[in-house]
Amino acid sequence: MKIKFTVNGRPETVDTDPMRRLLDVLRDDFGFLGVKEGCGEGECGACSVLVNGEIVFSCITPVGTVEGSEILTIEGYRNTERYRAIEAAMEEAGGVQCGFCTPGFVLAAEALLRKNPHPSEDEIREGISGNLCRCTGYSGIVEGIKKAAESEGVW
């Protein structure tokens, strides 16, 4: 089946099995290796990407269901001003250790902040609750998102 969508701002068409995992298409066909596989069943969030601005697990998303959608991975997001705000805040707050979960958290933060630019701590914790981190205990990540939200004029 031919499937059309936009990835990181570029219109693309793939001709593939529509049940293929979006994760595999992004990694193997497009080389977007910032999308990670941590569990393969929608539990850890390392494979998170944005589909039409909403955070989804690419490991359990059949590529055929994103027909006509806009997909954003860390590779597209990292060229934005918002990314730079999150990057600086995550680094400063100690939100990064092994890094395997980090691109997923960055996109979860973007999905949260674009809807809710001034989230409470509870809303931040809820917003990232689909992403697991085993290194930081989440303190640094939550604080990083708080700090990023304080960036003037970004959100």
């Binding site: 910032g34 860390i74 590779e75 990057e87 680094e91 980090t102 691109p103």
Partner: peptide
């Protein structure tokens, strides 16, 4: 943190 930029950006 020295390894942070490469990890955050994927």
């Amino acid at each position: 943190r020295q390894d942070a930029p490469g990890k955050i950006s994927g």
